[in-house]
Design a protein around this nucleic acid. Structure first.
Lengths: 309, 309
DNA sequence: GGATAAAGTTGACTTAATCAATCAATTGAT
DNA sequence: ATCAATTGATTGATTAAGTCAACTTTATCC
């Protein structure tokens, strides 16, 4: 029965659909005391956000009947909201664009929608707002990955809770991807605790990659000796791989190490971590030592990589 | 400008509303090749899921015009889907209930909705389904806390990633609620790592309270000596307080300690943690020692509590 | 150059939804 | 006990929303 989800999931999904149908109904009410219907408002919105669309284009985007849309557009034109221009290369089509009055109407509608959305958000505990927005982004992303807007990520320094998060994700991901046992998570916890205990801001650093409050990756740079720095615990979330986050984190370490006056940057990893290997190679690291060991419940081959600074 | 959220949030919320309007439109299409409109389908659904409702009750629940609903109900009655019975205590009202044919119609509609929902879920990577459902539950909960269905929680043993999670939440919550610095998070990391390193399953345990994959609380019971056990790192998420999770976690420790043959259960806490104190008192712990100390960037009063087993 | 298709329009129509008026039963105040 | 006010439900009248099919014009493909 693969592909058939459990009944609980179906029921929950349907409940959410009923819930959000009501929710949208409530928001629609706020639109309805304008002179535009929901369909009209959506057409106006699309007109404002597209470059000279054709009627067919709008109809497909909004799943509207061509005849219905045709009349609606004529109405807009008569009301002075819309201008049509024959398409130069195809006289059957008209290129649609809003007039100044049309743009004004859209602006008013947008203001209303903004106000309704802001009211909804405003009614929430500020601490909960990011949770709501993140949940919405998750749903969009899962249901329509292609259309979801690109979300930028950035680097930041560590703060309360980050050490635990790093331990958590190392524990989960290495168990899932390589079957490593709990002793690895314990090791990461010890390293993270040691970092905080002996943290020397001038010579050590921790970076986290974050996207809308969600941590996507992390790395440590710690002092090994006066001239040698060590890169540790490079991690990128599976969902965020391929965005160049790993490369960026390593670059940041190299730059910091240079500036802090280290002569050499070293790191220890294992041969199974192939995508990390590629990042180290690209950053100029050289493999200087390999030796088998038994750790974390597995037979592994440890590798030492170095970069002259 | 408190209460006015940032524009980014408003834009994201509106985008989600547009997105889900389309989403619901797509699902509606699947309903539309039955002989019932969306409004009719919703009325039938409510009829099936309520005990002898009145027309007004339905109208309020679904925000339908009384006249529109009245005609719709007459239609259902003529089609043999609906039976009305005069309310014994108020002859103006009729109690509505589905006939066998009505229940059959609802069953068919439900099957369609189930199929549409299952198809949507089925198109997803199985690993992502819980993420979708959790995101939906989050939205429901945030936007309509009262109506969201109660979600049961349960206790489980620890597994990969849990130690890190526990460190993470301690770090975040004690920083936020009490302003403790990073050395506390480091201490928790050391304790968690030590637990894993020296774990003795017969005499030690870790419990986590979980709700739909989300961790709500945790506690450790560790060996102090042959006859003394120590309760450590009791934590309950702010969003889950008041559900009795803390009490349950402590009870579990006490039960385990008794069964493992310990003579005494001890714990160390700080006087600022007042709600934890109440839990310990209720479980029968006695405060045996208090002493001021300076830790985690604060002046605190440490407390030792004990329970004879 | 003729068949075919696409973009858009129009007429005819059905369904959905709203509003106001109405009626009967009930409630509450005196 | 009586009567105004309220409530539950229905009906008539009307408007808005949406669909379907026929049709015109222009473009495309052999």
């Amino acid at each position: 029965m693969t592909g058939i989800p459990d009944t609980g999931g179906v029921a929950a999904l349907r409940r959410f659909n009923r819930f959000y149908t009501r929710q949208i109904g409530v928001l629609r009410q706020k639109l309805l005391d304008t002179r535009y219907s929901l369909a009209e408002a959506r057409v106006l919105y699309e007109l404002a956000h597209r470059e000279q669309p054709t009627a067919t284009e709008l109809g497909q985007a909004l799943q509207l009947d061509a005849g219905y849309l045709s009349r609606m557009l004529r109405g807009f034109e008569q009301a002075g909201l819309l201008r049509r221009r024959a398409a130069p290369e195809d006289a059957r089509r008209s290129l649609l664009s809003l007039s100044a009055a049309g743009r004004k109407a859209v602006t008013e509608l947008e203001a209303r929608s903004d106000a309704a959305a802001a009211a909804l958000l405003g009614s929430l505990d500020p601490a909960q707002r990011p949770r709501l927005l993140r949940a919405m982004a998750t749903i969009e992303q899962l249901l329509e990955p292609a259309a979801a807007p690109p979300r930028p990520w950035l680097l930041r320094d560590h703060r309360a809770g980050d050490m635990g998060w790093i331990v958590h994700r190392h524990g989960v991901l290495y168990a899932r991807e390589y079957g490593w046992d709990e002793s690895f998570e314990a090791l990461v916890a010890e390293i993270a605790a040691g970092f905080v205990r002996r943290y020397d801001p001038a010579r050590e650093h921790c970076w986290l990659a974050e996207r809308e409050g969600e941590i996507l990756g992390s790395v440590f740079l710690v002092k090994e000796s006066g001239t040698v720095a060590r890169l540790r615990l490079l991690l990128v979330e599976p969902a965020a791989r391929g965005l160049g986050i790993g490369r960026r984190l390593v670059e940041e370490c190299v730059r910091f190490a240079r500036r802090a006056g280290y002569r050499k940057l070293t790191l220890w990893t294992n041969d199974v971590l192939v995508s990390a290997r590629r990042i180290y190679e690209a950053a100029g690291f050289r493999l200087v030592k390999e030796e088998p060991h038994h750790s974390f419940g597995k037979d592994l081959v440890g590798q030492t990589w170095e970069l002259k600074l």
